[in-house]
Amino acid sequence: MRVEFTVNGEQYELDTDGDTRLLDYLRDELGLTGVKEGCGVGECGACTVLVEGKPTLSCLTYLPQIDGKEITTIEGLGENGKLHPLQEAFVETGGVQCGFCTPGFIMVSLKLLERNPDPTRKEIREWVEGNICRCTGYTKIVDAVQLAGKWLREKGDKVEL
């Protein structure tokens, strides 16, 4: 079938039988390697992207499912070569160690900050419970999300992509 969608604002149109995961298309065809494959079965959150603004697992999503939809990956954040405040906060707090899980954590947390720019540590932990990190012990990831929330509140910015 013919599918049309946008990725980070760019329009794409192609024919697909369906047998291509969004994850593979983004990585292999578009070179967006910030999207990571961890478990491949929906248990680790590393492949999280936004579909219509909603955190979605690209390892369990196939191209026909995104027809007409808007996709955002980690590469679509920030502007003019500057990091998005949430990315900046991960750098600042040391929320990144090996980095493999980081794009997934950032993509899922964006939506939390959009709903609530001042989440408690418990709310953050619950929101990211589908994402696994094997390095940080999570403490600094939670710090990063809180710090980004603080920056965004101070600037009076709404969380936008």
Binding site: G45, P55, T56, L57, T61, V108, W127, E129, G130
Partner: peptide, 9 residues
């Protein structure tokens, strides 16, 4: 159910 992403799907 599941986690944030799975509830969206």
């Amino acid at each position: 159910v599941g986690a944030t992403q799975l509830r969206n799907m």
